[in-house]
Design a protein around this nucleic acid. Structure first.
Lengths: 340, 340
DNA sequence: TGAAATTGCGAAAACGATTGTGCTAATTAT
DNA sequence: ATAATTAGCACAATCGTTTTCGCAATTTCA
């Protein structure tokens, strides 16, 4: 049985309220004498008193817990961001309740509701991105929220993301400059801001270079490894296959590699590859992977900062949307073609 | 303002206790008439009542939250296990409070205490492994605990781990059979069960093959990438360098790769490499990596199962220690040497 | 018809903390 | 000497649930 204030009260002879005040350091305000204070503190220590945070949460309507909602913790991008968030939040005295939505919109809605009932003080959400109403309800209820990675244009929230449009554009421009003309792209979840921006970048880069886009080269529908595998199999077996595959996320890239190796093709000799999301192992892949890197740690740290501010200002803060620049790490997975 | 039982009571004219009983589905036991039940349920739905889990947690002394304590969520091994645990727990109605200890023993102790105060119903802990007293205190207090990955022999807890000894032995035997005689090993955190078993496997494999061990080839001290980097730099520049480096974890392997590439060496021509912990990208590394694979998902699922049982039996269950077999995935990072 | 049984529900005490208000004794002021 | 302060603390309400106990009204039974 854990020690409660009542136990200390019995032991010391003082009342529960006095104990509470002393242990909260507001004894002086209530004119608790120094002698009493010291004695209470000593006994509390002796008994190793640990405040029950559930009770405190009920009374104060603050749990010092925040909900972290992510699609998939085993995805390196999310894992790194999560770590950064965890550390920042813990330093500020918050703990993290982590939920995986598995890229399922309904699961996300359900989990957010559950977390609200648990009384979390705020949310950092990397949304699936298909629906936004449940999130705008949060915002309207003045629940502190920060969106990460994907965002919505129709609701005003704090959000942290990378400039997906420009990152994608840079990557595709690089491909075009390298002489590629048939550039396949494997999309992530369509109808999400992130994906649409990346595709827009892809299209606009083509436009800028006055290269026509073959719509058949725009494939894929979600962020799973299988999506990468299936679409790559399809692309590689086209009558007129692409010379390069642009994968829009690290898990997709893994599927692409599965298929490329199954087909016994070599990168970049037989097929070039570029990826949005740079993983730790990218430099050491069989063909060091050219990839767009998102600043993980920074994204996490900024999200933490925004959320803490939002909590402090209790929803009165004006929302900020922070967009970070991704960088293109050029390695060796893209073949230079002679100007065609 | 969220709706409370009191609000529904006012609206319906019934008492808080009646509302509570009806919404908990035990109305019949208390002879609440069908008419009343239906009416209360209807109104509760209309008002979109969501029970306050903090209050419920206080009253029931059950939060339906469990603490997941891991060294580092950005490590792929831990990330995969965590995902598996998250999914299993969520299915059973539990949410996860996740803490990163950063391989710091004191942080771990602190976080476990914090989680207890938060009233978690149980723990799944992947301990740092240097101290065990705080964990045995948990067990003595009948708090449900499952240890994962690393464990302690001196306390009796549920634990799930791989057979590190045999996994390590298999890997080193393979190296010896491949003709290697100077096998360097980069350790993880020393004095932890996991590491010590792996080193024991390393030593016993040598013994079995009657090969003397050069103690200078046993290096390293923790699981960080930097450790892999530094020790590899050291090993590669010895007067009599090893022909193969055995890295005991994926993060270390990353550091090894950093150093090997910096030295412009080729794998396996100039230096062979084998790793404990198989990562998703292993087959696609510049030299497809030979590695010991731990069954992530299964480890997570078993941990969940054990914890749920332990919670149900409220600490009366006999503890089980479940050891899984790792497998050696042989790829191409180890050079075959002619029998020396 | 009166006692016993049943129906249908409410009051109130927890759970463990925080906090506004109030009360008594000692001290100070007048 | 009496009134006014002040020091030092306790009471009790509160947060939103759950649950034990019980009570009045109705029905059943003899």
């Amino acid at each position: 049985m854990p020690i409660t204030l009542k136990d200390i009260a019995r032991r010391t002879g003082y009342s529960v309220s006095t104990i509470s005040r002393v242990l909260n350091g507001v004894g002086e305000n209530y004119r608790i004498s120094a002698k009493t204070r010291l004695m209470i503190e000593r006994i509390a220590n002796e008994m190793n008193y640990q405040p029950n945070q559930v009770a405190r949460g009920l009374r104060l309507k603050k749990t010092h817990a925040i909900g972290l909602v992510i699609p998939d913790i085993s995805n390196p991008f999310f894992a790194h961001v999560s770590r950064s968030i965890q550390i920042g939040m813990y330093e500020s005295g918050y703990i993290l309740i982590v939920c995986n939505t598995d890229e399922n919109q309904e699961t996300e809605i359900e989990q957010i509701q559950l977390l609200r009932n648990k009384g979390v003080d705020g949310f950092i959400i990397m949304p699936v991105g298909l629906k936004s109403q449940h999130i705008s309800e949060l915002v309207e209820s003045k629940v502190p929220v920060v969106l990460l990675d994907r965002c919505f244009d129709d609701i005003s929230t704090n959000s942290v993301l990378v400039d997906n449009y420009n990152g994608s554009m840079k990557a595709v421009e690089y491909l075009l400059e390298s002489g590629h003309r048939r550039i396949a792209v494997i999309q992530g979840l369509t109808k999400t801001s992130t994906n649409d921006q990346r595709i827009k970048g892809y299209l606009d880069a083509h436009k800028k270079y006055k290269v026509d886009v073959d719509k058949n080269l725009i494939v894929g529908k979600d962020y799973r490894r299988e999506n990468g595998y299936i679409e790559t199999k399809y692309l590689l077996n086209m009558k007129n296959p692409p010379s390069v595959i642009y994968s829009t996320s690290d898990l997709i890239t893994l599927g692409v590699l599965d298929a490329v190796f199954e087909e016994k093709l070599r990168i970049p000799d037989d097929i070039s590859l570029v990826s949005f999301d740079d993983i730790d192992y990218a430099p050491y892949l069989i063909s060091p992977l050219t990839a767009v890197r998102q600043p993980w740690e920074i994204m996490g740290e900024i999200a933490v900062k925004l959320l803490l501010q939002e909590i402090k200002s209790s929803g009165q803060m004006e929302k900020s949307r922070i967009e970070l620049k991704p960088t293109l790490n050029i390695r060796k997975s893209v073949k230079k073609l002679g100007n065609p």
